[in-house]
Design a protein around this nucleic acid. Sequence first.
DNA 1: ATAGGGTTAG
Length: 601
Amino acid sequence: MYLKCDRIVGARKLFDRMPERDVVVWSAMIAGYSRLGLVDEARGLFGEMRSCGVEPNLVTWNGMLAGFGNNGLYDEAVGMFRVMLLEGFWPDGSTVSCVLPSVGCLEDVVMGAQVHGYVTKQGLICDKFVVSALLDMYGKCGFVKEMSRVFDEVEEMEIGSLNAFLTGLSRNGMVDAALEVFNRLKDQRVELNVVTWTSVIASCSQNGKDFEALELFRDMQAYGVEPNAVTIPSLIPACGNISALTHGKEIHCFSLRKGIFDDVYVGSALIDMYAKCGRIQLSRRCFDNMLAPNLVSWNAVISGYAMHGKAKETMEMFHMMQQSGQKPDSITFTCILSACAQNGLTEEGWHYYNSMSKEHGIEPKMEHYACMVTLLSRVGKLEEAYSIIKEMPFEPDACVWGALLSSCRVHNNLSLGEIAAEKLFPLEPANPGNYVLLSNIYASKGLWDEENRIREMMKSKGLRKNPGYSWIEVGHKVHMLLAGDQSHPQMKDILEKLDKLNMEMKKSGYLPKTNFVLQDVEEQDKEQILCGHSEKLAVVLGLLNTSPGQPLQVIKNLRICDDCHAVIKAISRLEGREIYIRDTNRFHHIKDGVCSCGDFW
DNA sequence: ATAGGGTTAG
């Protein structure tokens, strides 16, 4: 009873007072500790019972396996499994479903297949727990064929196994296949539970299907399935991804109505969502309201400040984190270094970079090198950035070379730009952005032949400049605007308004940054020039459809261009609006004609 | 026969 109520201390007192303890009591106590993640206590008792002359049985071993597996000690779980086999135990269905999740996490498909064979021989395949554990294991190992075979061979598919199968498909990049199976079953009126719905919502919001995730959330309720504390943090990232603040706030309210106040997953997801919707203060408030922030929560709040280019707050939070006793991980340092890079804080950047291995025992990874390269090269120390690359202990990847190339474009450094491009192109042959960067460097030097050569290269590979698009949420609808696309029903009004704004701006001395337009000579790009870049269109759409003074938030899939940046700054002054723009790199808070990035991005 | 152990969603 004590154990079922999670009263481990009470249970232990009772346990200690028992004059005689049989294997059942020991097993119950060990399982109790395992469930609460107190693995060391469980292990202690496991040793103790033997010295008390009680031999552990299959159930005792299963409890230990579950304890290790549920607390990330996969190696120990599998190791223990091997030992129990050596000691002559015959695993039953419970054993198998306890150990397979660990086998999967270790991607030890050899062991997994052996267990599969054993299970088949023993006739355990009719056990639903065993089936889902097998599906889960093959899914984690990336063996989709084997997973599907198990799925197809089982006669009566039970909901837990179906869920494991759907997750396995999504995990292996087959989101569409998972959705297809899901939709078919839904239409056949098969009873799907909250796990099924949550699973597909999560795979949508993790794979760029943010609108679909929001729709599924509505659907599940229409089907009478109640979202729970796992559904909420699976859905919230979708709102952040498309800057759907109104939706995000509604889901936040929904979770409060459901009585979810201090769930660490929900809290961390909210911190991230508000930051990505431009509301850094709300993001911070969510963090401050958390009772027990964990590493993910700290990283979320730190990354929020970094995303917004707020270096001072980024470091402050980092120091608070350490004072609280929370150890940073490599993601924490990526955030800090990227905040330094955005603000050109060379000295601080070096300091934190050096402290990583010296003070925190974290070896710099690819992304840290990429941050350092961005930091140094952006402030013009291109050679220093290049020497970091040369001294890296492993082969630099496309991010690192891309960081160098894009700074070479900012500083129009041809010689290093060519070196970076030569390394980068083979690594990312199909990324049009890279070719555009190099051709822009040539253009800036007036080397039109070279510039043309790169354009031809792109053409021969069938590559076109990625179309720019932007999103803006107006009321409950998220609008997507494509550069050069005239299809938005309000396009006439948008262009009219933009014209008016242009006139006003010219009166106050604004000159369009034509250097940016000169390079764009393709038909598609001409259209862009005529219609304006998508971020301008989105901002104007926001102006037209919201009441005066209301802030606007826009996201863009590419880096914001010089001209748009200047225009939107002017708009913020003329219209008295705060405008938040999130581009691929960071946030721009634009207010009264000034941008938080200080025109350095 | 019964106690004690299990899978799938973040």
